[in-house]
Amino acid sequence: MLDALRHHLGLTGSKKGCDHGQCGACTVMVNGRRINACLTLACMHDGDEVTTIEGLGQPDALNPLQEAFVREDGFQCGYCTPGQICSATAMLQEISEGWPSHVTQDLEAGAELTPEEISERMSGNLCRCSAYPNIVEAIRVAAGKQA
């Protein structure tokens, strides 16, 4: 799917960092759920709704999460950023639906939007510039705004 997006549809917002599901730069949402576009085939998603970074906002019309990433400097080189933002978008939905994570104390209770929870849930998106603290902050800011 990643090559289909990048080479055939000209949608280069989804990045190829490893091509093997080891970095998260290609994260897109399929029917609202985040996946690694590099580890699936486009033909397996006939009829599915695929949302890439191109579907979330434009440079002159950023969505709140994108705005927060800019303001909190949640990136440096920017290569992992579309994946981070797609991932965070779906991740916030997962938290709102009560999904637990590896660091959630009580499996049956919902999770709070703590830095620890965000960090664990965003660990599938590597950032070598290490904007991690700023990414966490951007997500908190954006989530607070949405709430």
Binding site: L11, T12, G13, S14, K15, T52, I53, E54, L56, G57, Q58, P59, D60, L62, Q66, F69, V70, F75, G78, T81, P82, I85
Partner: peptide
């Protein structure tokens, strides 16, 4: 920033 966060 706006270009990077939008994948453009």
């Amino acid at each position: 920033g706006p270009l990077k966060v939008t994948g453009t």
